[in-house]
Nucleic acid binder design. Structure first.
Length: 669
DNA sequence: TTTCCCAAGCTTTTT
DNA sequence: GCTTGGGAAA
């Protein structure tokens, strides 16, 4: 019979020599978490309860008590938060935490796959598809299969891709997902299923992985090869997972595998802040955690240090409207502050003016711009405000929304680089070939098949005849690729060669606005300096896309840190002195799309909860009362339904009044 | 087979 | 307002 030997913690020895006085730095609940022993634990931490701080101290504590930094793995939701946490932990212990491994699930999975991909039939230099690329593959397959012709209405490529993606993330089959979320396509389940198979096959033969593959192939790798799994698990003696409420089933499985040897997992999360359901996040994960990890110690952090009681009252009242129960009531000992305000503006213009003027007033009162955030549901909700901010020369940075590498011209350039990295990358080839005159989808498909059927001489034109219609273009393309693929050429030089080649194509294709796009490309080229090689640049572009609008903010005068504009999703985990939630309209939060989704209304409510709990001192929720829509003219809109029942004592209504002008005063007197 | 033009349809949040 | 799809000309 197998036996267990229980090791006593070794901490006692080290405790005397700790450089940080944990007891002074943390409250008792946090202290328990930070100094907890081995084995699985779950920390249920409400908004603003020092979750990040606790994790950072936990890392420091582990390092101080003798865990080698590179045996700690910190999985976070975004690269931004991973970097910030590791940085803060390093500061605590003057640099000793630097070698802690950290990143997103996807980034960590990638690092494993780069080493072990061959054992599941993938090349080591596989390329990563973003969702646009994935949809393009689907498009090629759909056209080839002729499905779009036979049926009256076949789903669009993006829809098909999201069905396939939902299958992987939720570990479901096509029939389940379609029945659940796309009942209008039940007739086509078989065909979508076939496409799904073809899509997987296509990726395999061309060395491509999409975002979901990074997770699912890693799990597959672990399940096929227990020895490998155990050695990976042994490489991280402590696994810490942030934002656990937003993990999906695959990610939960991955965590379980990583903990298989030592069972030292600490998951931190807040079920009331789960806002990634659309990506397969499953709140059930957090509840099932104690079942998956037998003997889990559960900790709760409830003491909020971020917000005033007035803001927490609103947050608590909001979340009570949920049909799901959350048994947390946030409290604080912070001195009282102002009541949160609900500001009804006459229209979008008035709303923008109010936000701008209030920001200026706060700045005069000494609140720096970067401590103020404007949050919104959809990235386009801030367009009007952005114009107004520009007009007033208020610097801002925007998170969420369009990414630099989603722009067509950047995707073009990246495709050349992807081909250099992985000459089997059919997606990149398809894109690049179609940029040549005389080559459309059909010829491109033929050529791609020919190219990928050959081995190493991918950049040679020999062995096949080519139509004079496009032979010149093809020659130029292959010459450039051959020249740039010489291994001694540096990455910046490669990019230069690609851009030089691409410039005439850009001018031809985007003759109306190529100067703007040329600028983007220049910016792109300058950003790539920081990467050590082509592979890391391409991976990084895929996993951590550059925010287009984050760059637009005047880079010239950096004397003042800019105001933050952000989608609520991108603001997760962050905090600001003052928060504006703009466009708090019914149909925006909750979004009209959410009405159809099961559990959609609850999720949107949590979204508003997340937005509200970002605020430390001041909170303004604003909305216009009238909006203009094409063909309909002005029409009335109403504020978010979640705000309907909230009393004036919790959320104070403000009205905007115009300064009386001299002429109107005359009228009065 | 490519490319151009017009009509239709849809439109969120992110790794 | 933009992308996507279909149809027709080159």
């Amino acid at each position: 019979m197998a036996r267990k030997f229980v090791l006593a913690p070794d901490n006692q020895v080290a405790r005397t020599s700790l450089t940080i006085n944990y007891q002074d730095e943390l409250n008792p609940q946090q202290y328990d978490v930070v100094t907890s022993g081995a084995g699985p634990s779950l920390v249920v931490a409400g908004a603003g309860t020092g979750k990040t701080r606790t994790l950072i101290f936990r890392v420091a504590y582990l390092v101080e008590t003798g865990v080698p930094p590179d045996h700690i793995l910190l999985l976070t939701f975004t690269r931004r938060s991973a970097a910030e946490m590791l940085n803060r932990a390093s500061q605590l212990l003057d640099g000793r935490c630097q070698r802690v491994r950290g990143g997103t699930f996807h980034a960590y999975a990638l690092s494993i796959l780069r080493r072990h991909a061959p054992s599941i039939g993938y090349p080591r230099n596989f390329t990563i598809l973003d969702s646009g690329d994935s949809a393009d593959v689907i498009d090629v397959l759909r056209t080839a299969s002729g499905f779009h012709k036979s049926d009256k209405r076949f789903p669009r490529k993006r829809t098909i891709y999201s069905i396939i993606s939902a299958c992987s993330n939720g570990e479901q089959d096509v029939a389940e997902v379609v029945a659940d979320k796309y009942p209008q396509f039940v007739d086509m389940i078989d065909k979508i299923g076939i496409l799904r198979e073809q899509y997987h096959q296509y990726k395999l033969t061309h060395g491509l992985m999409d975002y979901d593959d990074l997770l699912s192939k890693t799990v597959l790798l672990f399940e096929n090869n227990r020895a490998l799994r155990d050695s990976e698990s042994a490489r991280c003696r402590h696994v810490l997972v942030d934002e656990y409420q937003d993990t999906n089933r695959l990610q939960a499985r991955m965590v379980a595998h990583l903990a298989s040897v030592h069972r030292n997992v600490m998951a931190v999360g807040d079920d009331a802040q789960s806002i990634y359901g659309f990506r397969g996040a499953d709140t059930k994960n957090i509840f099932q955690y104690p079942e998956i990890f037998e003997g889990t110690t559960i900790y709760k952090l409830e003491h909020n240090y971020r917000s005033t009681q007035q803001i927490l009252n609103l947050a608590n009242t909001l979340i009570e409207q949920s049909t799901v129960r959350y048994d947390k009531k946030l409290f604080t000992e912070k001195p009282d502050g102002e009541l949160p305000a609900i500001v009804g503006a006459a229209d979008d213009q008035y709303e923008c003016r109010f936000v701008c003027q209030m920001i200026m007033r706060l700045r005069e009162e000494g609140i720096p711009l970067h401590r103020v955030a404007v949050l919104f549901r959809n990235s386009h909700n801030s367009f009007g405000l952005e114009i107004e901010l520009n007009r007033r020369n208020i610097p801002f940075i925007k998170f969420g929304g369009l990414k630099l590498n989603e722009a067509a011209h950047i995707k073009d350039v990246l495709s050349y680089l992807k081909i250099l990295e992985n000459p089997r990358d059919a997606v990149a080839w398809t894109r690049v070939l179609q940029l040549l005159p005389g080559i459309g989808p059909k010829t491109a498909a033929d050529l791609v098949e020919w190219i990928s059927s050959r081995g190493s001489e991918a950049f040679e034109l020999t062995g096949r005849s080519h139509s004079p219609r496009y032979i010149d273009g093809l020659k130029k393309l292959f010459n450039m690729l051959r020249a740039a693929s010489v291994t001694t050429i540096s990455l910046p030089r490669q990019i230069e060669m690609v851009l030089e080649y691409y410039d005439p194509i850009l001018k031809e294709k985007y003759y109306e606005d190529f100067p703007k796009r040329e600028q983007d490309l220049e910016q792109f080229a300058s950003l790539t300096d920081q990467f050590k090689d082509r592979e890391s640049m391409l991976s990084s572009m895929a996993l951590d896309p550059i925010e287009l609008t984050a760059l637009d903010a005047d880079g010239e005068e950096k004397d003042e840190q800019p105001l933050v504009l952000s989608t609520i999703h991108s603001a997760k985990g962050l905090e600001y002195h003052t928060v504006f939630v703009i466009q708090a309209l019914d149909g925006v939060v909750p979004s009209t799309y959410s009405l159809k989704e099961p559990g959609g209304l609850d999720e949107e409510l949590r979204l508003l909860y997340v937005a509200v709990t970002r605020a430390e001192e001041n909170l303004f929720i604003t909305y216009p009362m009238v909006q203009y829509r094409r063909f309909q003219g002005d029409y009335m809109v109403r504020p978010s339904r979640y705000l309907d029942e909230i009393s004036d004592a919790i959320l104070e209504p403000w009205t905007l009044v115009e300064t009386p002008t001299p002429s109107s005063q005359k009228l009065l007197s």
